[in-house]
Structures are given as C-alpha cells and as structure tokens.
C-alpha cells in the first residue's frame, strides 16, 4: 500500500506569533483570512493578548491608534482586499504619526483563480505606498518571521505605518483546474 506522507504544517504563522511575543504585541485587530487562521487562533489562546474581530478593516486602523494612545502595541491582520477599506483612516495614522504594524495576506497575485480578487490584489502595494505606508513584500516562507520583526521594529521605533505583504506564493492557492 502506498503511504502518502501528510505535508508538515507551515511554520511561518507561528514565526509571526513568536515575533509578536518578542516585541510585546498586546492587541490584535483582524478581519479573518484563511492565511491568518493559525495566527488568529494562537492570539486568541494567549491570555496576554486581546484579539478583536472587526466588521471592517478600517476599524482596526482606528483601534490600534487608540491602543498606542494608551501605551499598548498592536497589529492588524487582514487580507489584501481589506486594504482598500482602510485608506482614509490610514491618513489619520500618517498625520498623527502613529505606528502601525499590519500583516496582509495576499490574494489576486500568484496563481489566483478568482478574477474579482485581482483589482485590489494588484493595487495593494501601490495604494499603501501612496498613502505613506512602508511596504515589505515577502514571498519566501522562511523569511516571514524576520520580515515581520524588522517591520515591527521600524513601526514602533520610528512611529510609522509599516505593512508586510505575505505573498500568495507563501500562503498557497487553490487549484481550481481540477
């Protein structure tokens, strides 16, 4: 009998969680994305963190401005389609020079099957750059942890918004041709 070995679960979500612990993230704001499933679960399970599910991503931008006002570090998790929902609120982040760490799992790029994901996915980096967010795009699972750490350092030490775009090549994509 042929035994197929189940592929090992990717470690990058837990690499991110470990970075969160290292840099003292206490508030997590998120709109769920399949790519962030493991990370969201880990944050909910951590009593030192408060993970807040949002109705729309811009709520998280405002919430994390509030967290900084109160002395907490936070992070916003979302899918690339949510970036478009945040633009005006990101203007507040820029004008007040709030730090913002956001981790964006990408759709609408590498191997995408859903054409409706392309307009936002292909514009994500451009619109973030336009509104003054520093963008790091990571396409190698082994580099996700250190990229998030570097982004967190920059965000909290320079009081600037920094995004890490986690490529669809890392997250994986559905093969709908079958």
């Amino acid at each position: 009998m042929k035994v197929t070995k189940k592929p090992a679960a990717p470690t990058w979500p837990l690499d991110i969680y470990n970075v969160f612990k290292k840099v003292g993230i206490r508030q997590i704001a998120y709109v769920p994305d399949a790519g962030h499933t493991v990370l969201i679960k880990s944050c909910h399970a951590d009593k030192a963190m408060r993970a807040v599910s949002l109705t729309t991503e811009e709520e998280g931008v405002a919430m994390l401005a509030g967290s900084w006002l109160g002395g907490d570090r936070g992070a916003l998790l979302m899918q690339s389609s949510g970036v478009g929902n945040c633009i005006n609120m990101l203007g507040t982040i820029r004008e007040c020079r709030f730090p913002l760490l956001t981790l964006v799992t990408m759709r609408g790029e590498w191997g995408e099957f859903n054409p409706w994901q392309l307009p936002m996915g292909q514009s994500t980096a451009k619109v973030l750059d336009d509104v003054g967010v520093v963008v790091n795009h990571v396409n190698d699972a082994a580099l996700v942890g250190e990229t998030v750490f570097a982004a967190a350092m920059m965000a909290f030490q320079t009081c600037r918004p920094v995004a890490v775009l986690i490529g669809q090549r890392v997250v994986g994509f559905k093969d709908w041709s079958k």
Binding site: R26, Q27, A29, R50, V52, E58, E59, G60, V61, A62, M63, L64, A65, G66, S67, W68, L69, G70, G71, D72, G74, N88, M89, G91, T92, E95
Partner: peptide, 22 residues
C-alpha cells in the same frame, strides 16, 4: 483629550483600543 480632525467613523474604535490598553 484626544481630538480627531479627520478619520471620520473612527472615534469609537480609537476608544476601544484605548480602553483595552487602560
């Protein structure tokens, strides 16, 4: 007092982040 001059729709959620931190 923290005053907003923009970011319409965000006041309540700024309150949330602040309340959780304090």
């Amino acid at each position: 007092n923290y005053y907003m001059w923009g970011g319409m729709g965000g006041a309540a959620m700024i309150g949330v982040g602040l309340a959780l931190a304090q």
